[in-house]
Amino acid sequence: MYSFKMERAESLTSALERFGDSDDAVYLAGGHTLIPAMKQRLRAPEDVIDLSGIPGLRDILVTQDGIEIGAMATHAAVAGSAHVKTHIPVLADLAGGIGDRQVRNRGTIGGSIANNDPAADYPAAVLGLDARIVTDRRTIASGDFFKAMFETALEPDEIIRAIQFPKIERAAYLKFPNPASRYAMVGVLIACISDEVRIAITGAAPSVFRAADFEVALSESFSESSISELTLPSDTMNDDIHASADYRAHLCKVLIGRGVQMLSDH
């Protein structure tokens, strides 16, 4: 790790100011990607602006039409929240399966989605549950947020304040972990939102994506048989020593099928 300057911001305004004053600043949310990258000298920011002191960013609130989760809420806080467990149980499950206990106590939802790691879990929840990302300056729809591997719609200095999720009881998240890293090699979030089925897949491709054909078929008839003839294209899938693109495409379908089964039993 190279030496750097660290400051704790007291407000969103001061965080933005400090970011603007620096030639090379980065926000620190949970730090579970940033700190390892800095330790390996892959990143070397001059200024690290810690967001953990900003009031209100950790709140988990029930709103009229859903749950609003502060960007600095840890994975453990989301997993353990009574509100989340009651109104969006799949989100509590997903958060409780991220990393290990240490990671869950430091890592944050805002940090995770701002980073948009292709193998992270939260992007599947945000896209699959059709959440809205509320920043210091605007609200971004889930479909507009994730752009590419490690790329989002956020401006360089933009800070996520909260993520607004609709209340959804009928949803499941199925993760096939990479045996080594335990990140999602394939993670499928499947949600039934009134008559519509949404499927978001993380881990399999450079960025989270929706399985449109499967959504249409399952929206018409929510059964395994309705998707038996469908396949996912492997040419857009990741390919590495742990799983070829073909195998990832296959796993996506297996997990979708299992999710349909779980939600049908439910």
Partner: peptide, 23 residues
């Protein structure tokens, strides 16, 4: 079931951390 050291054709170690070497 899990462990394997992998070098690529250029002799770079693909499994150079616990992200890829499966402990």
């Amino acid at each position: 079931l899990l462990e394997q050291a992998v070098y690529d054709e250029s002799g770079q170690l693909v499994t150079g951390s616990y992200m890829d070497y499966c402990m």
